[in-house]
Nucleic acid binder design. Sequence first.
DNA 1: TGAAATATGATTCATATGTTGCGTTAGCCC
DNA 2: GGGCTAACGCAACATATGAATCATATTTCA
Lengths: 298, 298
Amino acid sequence: MSPTVDIAQHIAQRFETLTPQQRRAARFLLDHPTEVALKSMRELAQGAGVPPVTFVRLARALDFADYNALRAVFQGDVRQDRTRAGFSQKARDLQLRSGGDKTQALVKELFEAELDNIELTFSQNHPDQLIAAADLMERARRLFVLGRRSCHPTAAFFHYVHRLFRANAVLVPDGGQLVDCLRDAGPDDVLLVVSVAPYTADTVEAARWARERGTRLIAITDDRLSPIGRLADVVLMVGTATPSFFHSIVPMVALAQALLALLVARGGDAALAAIEASELQLNRFQVYWTDGDQEPTP
Amino acid sequence: MSPTVDIAQHIAQRFETLTPQQRRAARFLLDHPTEVALKSMRELAQGAGVPPVTFVRLARALDFADYNALRAVFQGDVRQDRTRAGFSQKARDLQLRSGGDKTQALVKELFEAELDNIELTFSQNHPDQLIAAADLMERARRLFVLGRRSCHPTAAFFHYVHRLFRANAVLVPDGGQLVDCLRDAGPDDVLLVVSVAPYTADTVEAARWARERGTRLIAITDDRLSPIGRLADVVLMVGTATPSFFHSIVPMVALAQALLALLVARGGDAALAAIEASELQLNRFQVYWTDGDQEPTP
DNA sequence: TGAAATATGATTCATATGTTGCGTTAGCCC
DNA sequence: GGGCTAACGCAACATATGAATCATATTTCA
């Protein structure tokens, strides 16, 4: 795990306790980790739009002896990344005909952005975090799955597949009042929430509600410091960048799929048996189209 | 190792002209490029076993204005490596390899499969096909969007975003009878259908129905020869391979997003104005959460 | 060998950096 | 509104840093 994750988690945990200016500085740290390693405090301060002293206070607030100790973490990351990753770059060429067309260029960019998103998603989330999420979900009495608006499809997909091998998932509908669904959520339950900026107000509310009730929270989100990221027991990060006007949900879907795969992989025979039963049922109800030369792919 | 190559070559060329102590310092630079970027001259001097001033003299001997200019080269390398290769593939490979865990291997495979899926998707679909699909949709009176079961989230997402800039899309609900929705579909309408094997029976039916009525058909599917692929005016191909037990919907989502981006890019000012109106409306209804200390990062 | 030229490192200096102290401001509770 | 606490930022401080100076050591060549 790139250790930036550690410091990021630490910052996220303490984020509530930080003062507004310190939060601004903290955001800057996470947004520009390399600069932190390289530049001086005063330079960073200028970039972040805060006085230098804020970084000193931030370091202390995060239990570092001094600012140098904090910076040392970021410098350590740089060293590690460089020694590990080496310096070469994977040559990636989407073999689009060199049309020179603007539209073709756009399409190419769109797809490269998705590749980057997936890469980013899987580098930002150490398998241990996925495993931690799977742990929580396995032990859950009920698993509420929540995603509003553009995030709802991801939640719905997760729920659909999840129900193939386990019956305790509840999909919170996209319309209507959340509280109707979450009213009796308790400490034995888990809430999987999917949300990226801009965060829908009721999703934030739901996260707080869950937190107050002791319900464990797993968040698929784009900002550790967002209200949802801060509250979550497990944060799974996604990048949403794209040349399009609308954020990408590809990384969320990819994460959701990875979680599902993990759950089944760990669920063993019971999960497999459940899946088999689901398939039988679907076949029995003639859900799928059949043809002479066609056979149902598993 | 990319741009460090430049400085390395430069040093190699001048190496003969350097004094013995400067050579020692120069060797140290090339052996520890990351440290040069991070540490102070004095610290390096200690590590290299030369007095600090040697680095100043070395910088001048290499035609740099001062030591800072020399160090800036190394810092630039760090930045470049991190932003571009940075957290990417190779680092991740090594990370995962170091664990040796089976679960980690699974996670790695899952993500690599998605990368392959995206690449495959974009190599299988020439931009012209996306453009053809966009053409059809633009001219459509109504645009029916259909996806059953696991493909429904993709359809729903497409519909949600599409409605932000155009009002003529109709999402066929996942439950219930298709015919209720498509009854009056005609030759001026377009049906966007998302379906991969195993094909749900009613999706196939819907495709036939549309075809009979003269409704144009755009298919996001995994097989050109499937009943849906055969009937479609435009086929957009997706790969769905994954080590998971369930097929991946990531490529469909990526395609859907690409289509949306194309539609907006071609929609011009009208589309942008519609999006703006949508945003205003959402803000007005206070859909999104707002925070005081939040500010747009530069 | 001896003188000139070069190389080297200790010392010093001006500046940059991280930190501290203190006065001011802003928010909050009674 | 008044009193209180927390937050903030300016200015001063001690230290660290890069560079200049100069004396000494080493090399070079007659």
